[in-house]
Write a protein that binds this DNA or RNA. Structure first.
Lengths: 344, 344
DNA sequence: ATATGAAATGACAACGTTACCAATTTACGG
DNA sequence: CCGTAAATTGGTAACGTTGTCATTTCATAT
């Protein structure tokens, strides 16, 4: 037998145990240890228990780098989102993780800061780890993204909106339908002079598409948009108050505002109350996403409630499905619900 | 030369390009290609450009599984948190990611659901990938966690609280100091009958430690805690309203409540206003974390403001430091600030 | 007992990369 | 133009695992 190591260095002591160590201690072959660790079939109980004992004694942990190299498959899932600080993504991520974890898969996180070029770079970096799949936010990506994923031949699931057709599968809601529904609601409630407020963190096209659909519908309804304001910073309640102030100063006769997110909408709600405007009598407010706090405010915030956790769950489920059947091509519309609240 | 593949299968076409492919196309050795891809020194410009051309043509991406196996080092950082749906962790994670990304490192995400046993399991799973470091929430872990990390000999940084001594390094605030500060504030504002409200998502000991410190200080100040209520579900505004109702029904003479989180505190604030209790005249409310919305409410929420993003940033920086100098042992107290607001 | 097939076990060669050393080329002073 | 050192290039052997195939052991029917 070849003596690979003929000098026992200090690192010898702390070296991570390998299959070989376990095999030697338990007096079986390496491949048998491998089979035991993987719960592969064709292993006798006697051998299994002997191996497990040795593995326990050595504190052996399989080295997935080696295993993955050999099988060229990992339990890693690349999850790339625009942001994670606040807003909707943490909740979606929560749903994703909960399903992946049960399936023994691990999310590897990438954040793009809403920058398409960064998405490409992050994806490239992640693909070097041979993830078994990729989860992306939105359906609007650089061509390179599609190309790289196609080349790897792994499943992709896109979550958030389903207004454009996805690379393979997608889970989300129709932002267009939501925008139309809000416009219809405003008309039904007899608002005549609607406005729109968004923010930087709503930059991607799904938000723009939503706004355009909103404006188009308003025109159809005969109550065209009076004015809009898109903050150039991340959405927050503070910013919501500021943008509302700006918008109302410029167009004081606006009688309802559709916000691209609830943070701004709440800020606006509080701003109006502080400045003596009656909501919804003087001005109607409706937000987007249906964050929890909005349903407990003294004036309950109207909002388009999106199923964020469930979106994550369904996204991950679709990933599992695609893993077992690569031909999977699904688009799941989770729909939305309008919480009327008391602000509209 | 050995012909490794003598049958060109269909997969041959889609097979991911390897060093060998690039080497053959560019007419250099594999090791030279490796050097070019890693920007290793001792490569002539001529060779470099030839290799890069070939790599580009083949769409070659290095296989990190192989590289990592050989060097037994990765750019992966295991990040294990109790939860991610809402609350403080997304913001910390945001800070962590922003620093790691700049350093070319990737967070691999693990969620424990506040379950210590799960933390062990998740960590074990992640260590199989030989991460270059581990980031954990809190300083209270199963002995197995410490053991496994020690055995791997990699850096750990614990973030959140720094009241117990960390395995290696930690970044956070002192929950004990914060609790004492709140108790002192209540005394100074002449509250006499304080209460405490927490929730399930505050389960770990850092929250308990905070509560105990709060109670102990109140005793010292001669205004012992009147009553407390710990919701057995995740914190939310809705739950905050409910727990407040329960607490005040049981102990109607409570004149101030310290909440373990701002979600519940906001719910309580709204609940009191809805039910005609004047805040802070009838009852004082102070929360924990200082979430943004609390600073725009008509009655600004008093809260202990914690530097969550910065906590993530400093945590990741410490990880980088420990990566270059494994003997790093730091404890960074980021401190907190009390936003007095208008609710206390 | 013996034949027969199934179950259990093992030997060996990869997977794609990089560390380590050796070989070759280049640069430059005398 | 030569010798020497530095810079550049390459050969070989791992890293720790698993797929493939061969070999051994075992159970069962005859």
């Amino acid at each position: 037998m070849t003596k690979t190591r003929n000098h026992v260095t200090q690192s010898e002591r702390t070296r991570r145990a390998t299959l070989r160590d376990v095999a030697q201690l338990s007096g079986v072959s390496e491949i048998s240890v491998s089979r035991v660790m993987r719960n592969a079939p064709s292993v006798s109980d006697r051998l299994r228990s002997r191996v497990l004992a040795a593995a326990g004694e050595l504190g052996y942990t399989p080295n997935r780098l080696a295993g993955a190299l050999k099988t060229s498959s990992t339990n890693l899932v690349a999850v790339i989102v625009p942001s994670i600080g606040n807003g909707v993504f943490p909740e979606v991520l929560d749903g994703i993780e909960s399903v992946l974890a049960d399936a023994g898969l691990r999310p590897v996180l990438g954040i793009t800061q809403y920058d398409r070029a960064q998405e490409v770079q992050v994806l490239r970096d992640m693909l070097a780890w041979s993830p078994m799949g990729v989860i992306l936010a939105g359906t609007d990506h650089e061509p390179a993204v599609t190309r790289m994923i196609d080349q790897q031949g792994i499943p992709v699931v896109e979550f958030m909106d389903i207004d454009r057709s996805p690379m393979q599968s997608a889970v989300g809601i129709s932002n267009v339908k939501a925008a139309v529904a809000v416009a219809d609601l405003l008309a039904k409630r007899n608002y005549k002079r609607p406005g729109y407020i968004g923010a930087w963190s709503e930059r991607p096209d799904r938000s723009k598409a939503r706004r355009l659909a909103f404006e188009a519908r308003l025109v159809e309804l005969g109550i065209p948009l009076v004015d809009r304001e898109i903050a150039s910073v991340r959405a927050s309640a503070e910013v919501g108050a500021k943008t509302t102030e700006t918008l109302l100063k410029r167009s004081p006769d606006i009688d309802a505002i559709f916000f691209a997110n609830d943070d701004q909408a709440l800020g606006a709600l509080f701003y109006c109350q502080r400045t003596g405007r009656k909501v919804p009598d003087d001005i109607g407010i409706i937000g987007f996403n249906g964050i929890e706090i909005g349903s407990t405010t003294p004036t309950i915030l109207a909002s388009v409630v999106t199923p964020r956790f469930q979106m994550g769950v369904e996204t991950a489920k679709l990933m599992l499905l695609a893993a077992s059947d690569p031909s999977t091509r699904n688009v799941i519309d989770l729909g939305f619900e309008i919480r009327l609240g008391e602000s509209i």
